[in-house]
């Protein structure tokens, strides 16, 4: 399946784009996606934290992805 990932803040700079399309195996989960991203973009490994949001909600590591999901990569947040 193909998933689209929205990128923000420092992850946008590391990856060099505000969006990313990834081809993943069926039943790929959040952990699989994070492992792929960290392998393809090693600078992501140096961040304080790196989370995935699915449909505007923080996702658990074992949550399975689907093509319809709105997926975002969330580096350490820092509002206020």
């Amino acid at each position: 399946m193909q998933v689209k990932i929205a990128l923000f803040g420092i992850t946008k700079e590391i990856i060099g784009s505000s969006k990313l399309k990834y081809e993943l195996g069926e039943n790929a989960d959040v952990n699989n996606l994070l492992e792929r991203l960290k392998a393809d973009y090693p600078a992501l490994q140096n961040l304080n934290s790196l989370l995935i949001a699915i449909n505007d909600e923080y996702a658990q590591a074992e949550q399975v992805l689907s093509e319809q999901d709105e997926i975002a990569l969330i580096p350490p947040v820092c509002g206020g």
Partner: peptide, 14 residues
């Protein structure tokens, strides 16, 4: 509200 906002709301500053 401000303490929790800083921890969980997806906003970034450069």
């Amino acid at each position: 509200i401000i303490d929790t906002l800083k921890q969980v709301v997806p906003i970034w500053k450069k």
